[in-house]
């Protein structure tokens, strides 16, 4: 990474308490343009709390998150005005929820779901919106004939792919993903991962992806952050962390992968 490039996204000393319980504590990292960062750890280790805090869905107790925005310049995410945060969330950011039903409107068709972000930023030409929706359905390998079907008639894997299309249609710069392959069977998971990897490299997306699945992390992430009990125990390049784990917890995690 060239020295002159500024980090796209920077987290400093982020801490979240739930009462006297720790959600996550003193997390700091930088994310560079085009980089995919994986956050791994066991269930309850604070991964999702961290993701919700940095994607401005949850107010942290301490710490700052700054983002280099294309429209607003460098902003302090949690101290900026709410309209700016909401604008970011539907233009420059994408948020892929673990459960696709949290990210989709189940009462309207797949095409309308994809079109929503476009319409929210002012698209007012039905034909263009529809063309865009068809294009993105193709991009995530959903048959074009399903464009007018409701998402609830889709399988879990298709819903997840639809959710990804909904997020990418406005060409975001930064995408947050919370267990995007959770709950999918392995063959569907493999295809989704393949798709994600292609999209990420072709569109030059920066991604922060939370997963408990080290295989997902290995496939997608350039860099890994290992969390336990709300704290980061190890960071490094993906291959380095997975092939030569230094911290005892990471060693445990890596050795726990089932071999078939």
């Amino acid at each position: 990474m060239a020295e002159s490039v500024k980090p796209l996204f920077s987290v400093q000393g982020l801490t979240k308490y739930y009462g006297d319980m720790i959600g996550c504590r003193d997390v700091s990292f930088d994310l560079w343009p085009g980089e995919v960062m994986g956050i791994v750890g066991e269930s309850g280790s604070g991964k999702s709390t961290l993701l919700n805090c940095i994607s401005a869905q949850l107010e942290p107790s301490e710490g700052t998150v700054s983002y280099e925005s294309g429209q607003f310049g460098n902003i302090d995410v949690h101290r900026s005005e709410e309209p700016i945060r909401r604008k970011l969330r539907r233009t420059e950011w994408g948020i892929v929820h673990q459960n696709p039903r949290d990210g989709l409107r189940l009462g309207v068709s797949a095409g309308a779901n994809i079109g929503e972000r476009l319409m929210s930023i002012g698209a007012r030409h039905y034909g263009n919106i529809r063309r865009n929706a068809l294009e993105w359905l193709g991009e995530v390998e959903i048959d074009a004939s399903r464009i007018d079907h409701l998402p609830k008639t889709f399988s879990g894997g298709m819903q997840q792919r639809l959710q990804i299309a909904c997020n990418l249609v406005t060409e975001p710069r930064l995408v947050f993903m919370d267990e995007p392959t959770g709950g999918l069977d392995v063959s569907v998971q493999a295809r989704l991962l393949d798709l994600l990897r292609n999209l990420v490299s072709r569109l030059g997306l920066s991604v922060i992806i939370v997963t408990h699945d080290l295989a997902v992390a290995r496939l997608l992430a350039h860099r890994l952050m290992v969390m336990r009990r709300g704290e980061v125990v190890e960071t490094g390049l993906t291959d380095q962390v997975l092939d030569d784990p230094q911290h005892e917890y990471t060693q445990l995690l890596v050795s726990s992968i089932l071999q078939v």
């Binding site: 909401r86 309207v108 095409g111 309308a112 319409m119 929210s120 930023i121 007012r124 529809r130």
Partner: peptide, 30 residues
């Protein structure tokens, strides 16, 4: 399109009216 009153008030305040067109889109699609 949005069942939560807290959310609809916010949408009015911030002029986030994209979802109204989602409804019209759905009409044309159907």
């Amino acid at each position: 399109m949005e069942a939560r009153e807290t959310e609809t008030r916010k949408m009015h305040a911030l002029e986030e009216y994209g979802v109204m067109h989602v409804k019209l889109y759905e009409d044309i699609a159907r």
